[in-house]
């Protein structure tokens, strides 16, 4: 059920990757996202696949767990692939009415599919190996320099950490409410679109009610502990950039160079 959603979830384990400085991980993830769009041929993706598996081993995340996280995106990926497959002009291989498959279309849709796949997989490594708290404190620290020009770095980080903190809670809550309504015979996945939309009411209303209640309670709890924004707040766990992080940075740089070099083997696109 909803429990299967693993995107943005933390995967507890004791690995080097888990212990890296979150700031480094965030920056490397951003670079990685850009790098994916620089890949020009399938060798690059092959290397990425090998590296992803290696990263799984190093960070002690089962490959299956990583792949399971892709499931909710399957529909999106299929649609993207189909659109590219049928909508690309070029050398026609097969045609039926306005539908046509071209050689370019096949390559482009495979490319898009791989891009989305590695984009999601790569970025999930960030959340799998970093607790929400460290993640937001990393973001806060990265945004600090921008607070001079009015970016509310602490507030952004606080909002993010609250949002991240409550995702699992809300999922759990939804599961519970769904179970309770099913116990009263609610048919959740039957009937036409309108009936299905209607059957969501018994779930959404209690969910909203409880979300507002939680928000209220949280606000009161924060106020009663004299929370007043980011000024002069200190941290119990300061972020430290260490030798481990420098090594990780070098390894990443080498892999990145290798990936870009593979582009010299020729472009499929």
């Amino acid at each position: 059920m909803l429990k299967d959603i693993t995107i943005g979830q933390y995967y507890p384990s004791e690995s080097v990757v888990h212990k890296l400085d979150p700031r480094l991980k965030i920056i490397l993830t951003l670079v990685y996202i850009v790098a994916i769009f620089l890949i020009r041929n399938f060798w690059g993706f092959l290397l990425l696949a090998v590296l992803s598996i290696l990263l799984c081993k190093v960070s002690k995340i089962p490959v299956g767990f990583l792949l399971k996280g892709l499931k909710p995106l399957a529909v999106l990926m299929v649609i993207t692939a189909l659109l590219n497959l049928f909508m690309t002009d070029g050398k026609i291989l097969w045609q039926l009415g306005f539908l046509k498959i071209t050689q370019e279309g096949i390559i482009l849709s495979a490319f898009m599919l791989l891009r989305i796949l590695f984009l999601v997989m790569g970025t999930s490594f960030l959340t799998y190996t970093t607790t929400p708290i460290t993640l937001t404190s990393g973001i806060e620290s990265l945004l600090k320099p921008f607070s001079k020009i009015g970016v509310p770095s602490h507030e952004i980080a606080m909002m993010m950490s609250i949002a991240l903190r409550f995702i699992p809670t809300l999922i759990e809550e939804t599961d519970k409410i769904m179970a309770a309504q099913k116990a009263r015979g609610a048919a959740l996945s039957e009937g036409n679109l309108i009936q299905r939309a209607k059957s969501l009411i018994p779930i959404l209303i209690p969910l909203f009610v409880s979300a507002f209640r939680r928000a209220d309670e949280l606000a009161i709890a924060m106020e009663s502990r004299c929370y007043h924004g980011g000024d002069d707040r200190t941290k119990m766990k300061e972020l430290k950039y260490g030798k481990r992080d420098t090594i990780a940075l070098f390894v990443f740089a080498i892999c990145l160079t290798g990936m870009l070099m593979l582009n010299l083997l020729g472009a499929s696109l």
Partner: peptide, 19 residues
């Protein structure tokens, strides 16, 4: 249809009210 034969009142059932 088992849920009609075995009625289950959940923990904190008031959280499921919606109508």
């Amino acid at each position: 249809g088992l849920c009609f034969t075995v009625g289950l009142v959940f923990q904190y059932p008031e959280q499921q009210l919606f109508a």
